[in-house]
Nucleic acid binder design. Structure first.
Length: 458
DNA sequence: TGAAATGTTGGGGCG
DNA sequence: ACGCCCCAACATTTC
């Protein structure tokens, strides 16, 4: 019986996995994960712990089926060559990954080895979405129209028929790392969460997703990032709900969620078509903005000590959990870029270090969008007012109080802008601005004018 | 997937 | 009754 390697990268799942399916069709499957020093050298301890936990879960699921995960460390092509000769495997199957590093890595592997790449990191291959003139989309709305018009490839149900495994080879033990508390890794958890979301918050997603103080989002991004959840399955479920839902408000919710999943595909496609966005603004005319070199302000932002409660709450949520509410991501990104006038790439790097769902395509897309320098970006003059955003999306301040406990005693009327509390009140609450909680690092109105001037001169 | 500045309207206080 | 002012409320424009 022939042996075929399933090279696992960002597809830590048994369900709806074309790489596993193709390998299984041809014989016994040898599941392999390679710890690539190039990727591990980039410090992101929480995401790495999430990955290792996911590998442990996957290994446990494989063992229930009579297989096991083989873990190796080193340059992938070299490691695969060794594995092919040790196992006598005839081919390697993997899901195509669209980041620049992954493409270079896979091109080398494909030149030297029998590597077969399959779609599955996205629903539609980036190159299959092109305008009539053959050029890639750079605006979301037409991209999404085209995406929806393409025939939807239905997700594979269940495990590959006749799934059998190679008895396994020696490998490294899985590194021990405590998984982040709020996000238990693995596909079982991912599927459970998706079901809970679809039966719960999804119906109200169109509105609820914006609320910082409610669990109105799916919080599935870490699972999608590592392919613990098949994006094709997620989109299929969203579509099915939207089509079968009689309640128009609920249908809107499912459609909005589907749209968010399509944003994910959009940014995968943007990175595939324009790899340089990882280094510079997509919009050439906005590459010369005079960003401030302000290490103290950057440090305050990173630490959640800007003096703007909603910004600080969000930054602390990120450090504590490895995740941040999407509305909060927009607020803190707008604050870094448009209030502090700090280069969006500093924020992009900080997010990549801390986010469990940190993915070059989605993260870069989000930052360029907020900074107003990317594809289909927010116009440069769209500047969030952190106080108004806070009042609107955290009306009682409960999100703030959860992550900025030193403000817990501040009354609702002052929770969004505590520096406006009279001195007497600050003293009686023992919340003195400037000592118990930072004074604002910038005045928003002044910062806004500064940024408008900086962008306008470009 | 904004917010601020500016313009318009209309009710009410007042002489 | 009338003109005038103020200013909320809303709409439009601008950044």
């Amino acid at each position: 019986m022939s042996v075929n390697i399933w090279w696992i990268r960002r597809d830590l799942r048994l369900h709806d996995n074309p790489a596993l399916l193709r390998a299984a069709e041809q014989g016994a499957v040898l599941p392999v994960f390679i710890l690539d020093p190039h990727l591990l050298d980039r410090p992101a301890p929480m995401r790495q712990a999430f990955l290792f936990g996911g590998l442990r879960q996957l290994d446990a699921n494989l063992r229930n089926l009579g297989g096991r995960l083989v873990l190796r460390r080193g340059e992938p092509t070299e490691q695969l060559r060794l594995l092919l000769s040790e196992s006598g495997a005839q081919s390697v199957h993997a899901l195509e990954d669209y980041s620049p590093y992954a493409r270079t890595r896979d091109e080398r592997a494909a030149r030297e080895l029998p590597l077969h790449l399959h779609g599955g990191v996205t629903v539609h291959h980036p190159a299959s979405l092109r305008k009539a003139d053959g050029r890639p989309y750079t605006v979301f709305t037409p991209f999404s129209k085209n995406w929806k018009a393409l025939p939807f490839p239905s997700a594979a149900a269940g495990l590959p028929p006749g799934l059998a495994f190679h008895p396994g080879l020696s490998g490294e033990a899985l590194p021990d790392a405590a998984a982040p508390a709020g996000f238990p890794p693995g596909e079982t958890e991912a599927l459970r969460r998706m079901d809970a979301f679809l039966d719960g918050a999804a119906a109200d997603y169109a509105e609820g997703r914006n609320r910082l103080d409610l669990d109105g989002t799916s919080a599935l991004s870490p699972y999608l990032r590592f392919g613990m959840l098949s994006p094709r399955l997620a989109c299929q479920r969203a579509l099915a709900r939207a089509q079968s839902s009689g309640d128009s408000a609920a249908r809107k919710g499912y459609e909005t969620w589907l749209n968010e999943l399509i944003w994910r595909e959009f940014y995968q496609a943007i990175l595939y078509e324009f790899p340089r966005v990882l280094r510079e603004a997509f919009n050439p005319s906005l590459r010369q903005i005079h960003w401030r070199d302000a290490p103290a302000d950057l440090a305050a932002w990173q630490a959640g000590r800007t003096g703007y409660p909603v910004v600080d709450a969000a930054m602390r949520q990120l450090s504590a959990t490895g995740w941040m509410h999407n509305r909060a991501r927009m607020i803190v990104a707008s604050f870094l870029v448009k209030d502090l006038l700090i280069d969006w790439r500093a924020g992009e790097a900080w997010f990549m270090r801390h986010l469990l769902d940190g993915d070059p395509a989605a993260n870069n897309g989000g930052w360029q969008w907020t900074a107003g320098v990317g594809t289909d970006a927010a116009p440069y003059f769209r500047i969030f007012n952190p106080v108004l955003q806070s009042q609107k999306f955290d009306p009682q301040g409960s999100y703030i109080r959860r992550w900025v406990p030193e403000l817990a005693r501040v009354p609702d009327a002052h929770i969004h802008a505590p520096w406006q509390m009279p001195g007497m009140l600050q003293a009686s609450l023992a919340v003195r601005i400037g000592s118990d909680y930072p004074a604002p690092v910038v005045d928003h109105a002044l910062a806004r004018e500064r940024t408008l001037a900086a962008f306008k001169s470009k």
